[in-house]
Simulated scan of single mutants.
Amino acid sequence: MIAGKIRAALLAMGTLLLLNACASTHMRDVPEPIAATKPAENSATLVLMRPSFFGGAIQSSVYDITTGNSEFIGIVSAGKKIAYEAPAGKRRLMVVGESADFMDADFAADQIYYARVVPRLGVWKARFSLEPIPASSSELESDLKSCTWVDNTPASHDWARANIQSVDAKKAEYLEDWEKGSDKPFIARDAGQKARP
């Protein structure tokens, strides 16, 4: 009985250490950002979250590629979420791991939108996809609660600058095939929720 309790305690401690090791050291934990509840004027907020711990040792970096440039949003580790404020209108987002994957959105001003960063099996390490979550989803609340807020630091921006060539190479390799596909994830204007007053 005592041996079982010791084993359970050691397993719990090991799991906590593993989960902490999986988080990006480039990002910092923060309280809920204002943008998560109230975007700036003529803007919308996209909350990107990664509730799954599958592939937890591999980081997923997310970009806005609407202009053709890869504009760094942040690194979304397992169990983390980040609020990205963007101008209302059409946007194209990209997530990078072993490969690159994409999602289009059409944001309405003063709305909050949600998407999961979903890990999947890759050849050498995890690949990731972006999966829209309607604000009406029954799973949204538990996904949000299972993740803690993070934000960028000078170290995350340094990492993004140092890795931009690799990121752009993956974008060039995978975007054309994605555009030819028929099952492309999309966030519609009416899939969000009104910002809090």
Results as ranks from 00 to 15, higher is better:
P134H: 07
N42Y: 08
R28M: 00
K171G: 06
S146C: 08
S99L: 12
P119W: 04
D104W: 04
K171E: 10
F128E: 04
I6F: 07
A57D: 13
A109H: 06
G56N: 05
L19P: 01
G74R: 09
T37C: 14
A35F: 11
D190A: 08
A9M: 09
D143Y: 11
S52W: 09
A155N: 10
V167C: 03
T66H: 00
A40L: 15
S166T: 09
T67G: 05
L19R: 12
P154E: 01
D29T: 12
G68P: 08
D29W: 07
S182I: 05
I82D: 02
L121K: 12
I112E: 08
V30R: 02
K125H: 15
P132L: 07
K81N: 11
G97N: 03
G79I: 13
Y174K: 09
E179G: 09
G56H: 11
V62K: 10
W149T: 02
W159Q: 10
Y114E: 04
R91S: 13
T66L: 04
A23V: 14
K125W: 15
K184D: 05
M103Y: 04
T153Y: 02
S146T: 01
Y114R: 09
A160I: 06
I34K: 14
T66N: 01
V62E: 13
H157P: 03
S136Q: 10
Y63V: 01
V62R: 03
A78M: 07
V123P: 10
T37M: 13
N42W: 02
L10N: 07
N20L: 08
L17I: 13
Y84G: 06
Y113R: 09
P33N: 01
N42K: 14
V96K: 01
A115T: 11
V118I: 13
D190R: 02
D110V: 03
T148V: 10
E139T: 03
K170Q: 06
S52M: 10
I65W: 02
M103K: 03
I65V: 12
V76T: 08
T37Y: 11
L130N: 05
I187T: 09
L46A: 04
G181Y: 05
P87M: 02
P154Y: 00
A105P: 08
S166L: 06
L17Y: 06
M103P: 06
F54L: 13
Y113S: 11
T67D: 09
E131S: 13
D29V: 00
P132F: 12
S70K: 00
S142A: 15
K184H: 09
R161S: 10
I6N: 00
N42R: 13
L130R: 02
A109L: 03
N163R: 06
D168G: 10
Q165P: 11
I82H: 03
E139L: 10
H157Q: 01
D29Y: 10
D168F: 05
Y84N: 02
A126I: 15
G56A: 13
M49C: 05
Q59K: 14
D101C: 08
S52E: 11
Q193I: 14
K145A: 12
Q165K: 15
R120S: 15
G192R: 15
V47G: 03
E32F: 02
K81Q: 05
E98A: 04
P33F: 05
V95G: 12
D158C: 00
D143C: 05
Y174N: 09
K194P: 12
W159N: 10
A191D: 15
L11N: 08
R127S: 14
